[in-house]
Computed example of a mutant assay.
Amino acid sequence: MCSYKKYRQLALGMALALLHGFTQAASYIDVLDLPAKTSALAVRSPLLGVARAGTRLVAVGQRGHILYSDDGGKAWQQAAVPVSADLNAVSFPTAAQGWAVGNDGVVLHTSDGGQTWSKQLDGRQIGALLVNHYGALASAEPANEQWATRVEEGQRLTEEGADKPLLDVWFANEKTGYVVGAFNLILRTDDGGQHWTPFQDRSDNPQSLHLNAIASTGDALYIVGEQGLLLKWNESAQRFVALDSPYQGSFFGVIGKPGEVLVYGLRGHVFRSVDGGASWAALNTGLQVSITAATVDAKGRYLLFSQAGQMLVDAGDSRLTSIPQQNPAPSAGAISTPDGTLVLVGSRGARALDVK
């Protein structure tokens, strides 16, 4: 039997535990409201995306870290960022104007080439965006059942909270751009991010598969996702239409030049199309690990990188040739500078390579 003294000690312990929990709850700050911490180790921390802002390089990564380099990736400085959410991708249509996206539905904007950032949107607002947008359409077209379904989706997102990962971002210019993410989340802006329009109804993605990447080849805009999803923007239809896919596994990226496009993903799969996605030819990588990053170098060659650290170069036919490198590391993003320097970002931070 428990004595009165032991009972009192147990009660006191429970009270202290509850008080500790209340103190922790009171001191909790959402990562969407907590500025990223400045750290000398940020350049060696996990980074997930990199882009050119004119001659500057800007990289984004975990805990809200954003770094910029003005010497081709040799030295980096940390930017002022208002959130600590993990950041997944970054896009600069001009040297000054840029956008970054990440977990918790966060969208950040810079107007000074990546030195300072402000928050334009986060996951706490996205559900309401859907409800308001599709609610207006439902009022205008009450017989159209898809609008009611979209409203319900927005209500669900609102109830679930801020956890709505945005996985990629692409801007055509200072005004028009897209962010894409999990469960077919697509938002478009035509005023530089001041307002965002849901585009879920404008994609051929009935299963609401995750959208992993969006990119332009110069003459077409593509989205790739899980389960072989391939989408292409159709200007006349004003929607992303589905393309026949050569592979049923996930694609992690898309890259190209006018007249051709490459998509890459799971288990070393890479495909090329030279007819706007109407047909695809497989490129032999010789790998069974996923391709996770790609860039076009100063010579116009495609360079692709695997999650195991291998580097491949497009040989101009159906082959991808492996390029040996010292201390290979997994790559999540890649960019080539005009002078031929290759900058990779990944789990070990940022590093610059001289590739011949």
Results as ranks from 00 to 15, higher is better:
M1P: 05
Y4P: 00
G13D: 09
A17T: 12
L18H: 06
Q24E: 10
S27L: 08
Y28V: 09
Y28F: 13
D30H: 10
D33K: 03
S39M: 05
A42T: 11
A42P: 05
L47V: 02
G49S: 10
G49Y: 09
G54R: 03
T55D: 07
H65Y: 14
D71P: 01
W76L: 08
W76V: 07
Q77F: 06
A89R: 07
P93I: 06
W99V: 07
A100C: 05
H109I: 02
G113H: 11
G113A: 07
D122S: 01
R124F: 09
Q125A: 06
Q125C: 01
I126A: 06
G127Y: 07
L129M: 00
A136W: 07
S139T: 13
A143W: 14
N144G: 04
Q146W: 07
Q146Y: 02
A148F: 04
T149A: 15
V151H: 06
E152S: 09
E153C: 05
D163V: 15
D168P: 04
F171A: 11
K175V: 05
Y178A: 00
L187T: 03
L187V: 10
D191E: 13
D191G: 06
W196Q: 06
Q200S: 09
Q200T: 14
D201T: 08
S203A: 14
D204M: 10
N205H: 08
P206Q: 07
Q207R: 05
S208Y: 14
H210D: 08
N212R: 11
D219I: 04
A220D: 10
A220Y: 04
L221R: 05
L221M: 11
I223Y: 03
V224L: 11
Q227V: 09
L229D: 04
L229Q: 06
L229T: 02
S236D: 15
S236E: 15
A242R: 10
Q248W: 04
G249N: 15
I255L: 15
I255P: 04
E260L: 11
V263C: 13
G265K: 06
G265V: 12
L266Q: 14
V270R: 00
S279V: 08
W280D: 00
A282D: 02
T285S: 15
T292E: 10
A294C: 12
K299D: 15
K299R: 13
Y302K: 06
Y302T: 15
Y302P: 04
L304E: 10
F305D: 08
G309F: 11
L312H: 12
S318D: 12
S322W: 11
P324E: 14
N327R: 10
N327K: 08
G340L: 03
T341L: 01
V343F: 06
A350Q: 03
R351P: 09
R351C: 04
A352C: 04
D354R: 00
